[in-house]
């Protein structure tokens, strides 16, 4: 465990907690894409299949449980909570995210480190995580007005993946056999998807104006 990875995990945890806090306190999910949340729940469900088989550390198991419970709770809140669901704007959240699932699965069947069920599901979850933010970014572009909690949520998600890239660089230089091209390329693609959001986020922060994404 290195500082980049710990910081990455904490940032990732913060992003999920910010979102849960927003939905739980103001009982609203305005500006949040349910599709992205469903994709994230699927990412964690397919990535943490080894939750009960491979014990790595208490930290690892604890974090996996937190991510699983929080991501499914967020989906439940938006879909079933009597007050929150009213603020879900399904007419705007129209990204056909099922079209992301199949290509990621097919790609995982073709490009993986080992042709086993667990490894293919793990690789699928990596590819899916890389594109899971797309419905949310499309929704942000559509609704234009980004409330700062949603902006912080997306920012923290991007920051977590950027820190993971530093973690992979660190591990590459410190651990002789640490080579995971699939993880690195997928993580890089994911981070690049956030690049333009970061640009506009910093612009709005620097000029102290409301965050607006170009249509």
């Amino acid at each position: 465990m290195n500082i980049f990875r710990l910081a990455g995990d904490m940032t990732h945890l913060a992003s999920v907690l910010v979102l849960l806090l927003k939905i739980h306190t103001i009982k609203s999910c305005a500006g949040i894409s349910l599709k992205t949340q469903e994709l994230y729940a699927l990412v964690f469900a397919t990535r943490y299949l080894d939750l009960f088989t491979d014990y790595i550390s208490l930290y690892n198991t604890l974090m996996k449980l937190i991510f699983l419970v929080s991501s499914f709770s967020i989906v439940w809140y938006i879909r079933h909570h009597k007050i929150v669901r009213r603020s879900y704007d399904k007419d705007q959240d129209t990204f056909r995210h099922y079209f992301l699932v199949l290509p990621c699965f097919l790609l995982a069947l073709v490009i993986n480190e080992k042709f086993t069920v667990k490894e293919i599901m793990w690789t699928f979850s990596l590819y899916l995580e890389a594109v899971a933010i797309l419905p949310q970014l499309v929704l942000l572009q559509r609704t234009r007005n980004i409330d700062n909690l949603t902006g912080q949520y997306v920012f923290l998600l991007g920051a977590y993946r950027s820190l993971y890239i530093l973690n992979w660089i660190y591990r590459y230089f410190t651990e002789p056999h640490y080579v995971h091209w699939i993880t690195w390329i997928s993580g890089l693609v994911q981070t690049l998807l956030y690049a333009d959001f970061f640009y506009y986020y910093f612009q709005s922060w620097k000029n102290n104006v409301k965050l607006e994404l170009p249509a």
Binding site: R5, D9, H12, D50, D54, Y55, I56, N60, M63, K64, F67, E113, K114, E119, W122, Y164, N167, H177, T183
Partner: peptide, 10 residues
């Protein structure tokens, strides 16, 4: 224990 191929990252 972390075997070689298992993934130790979240």
């Amino acid at each position: 224990v972390v075997t070689g191929d298992s993934h130790d990252e979240l």
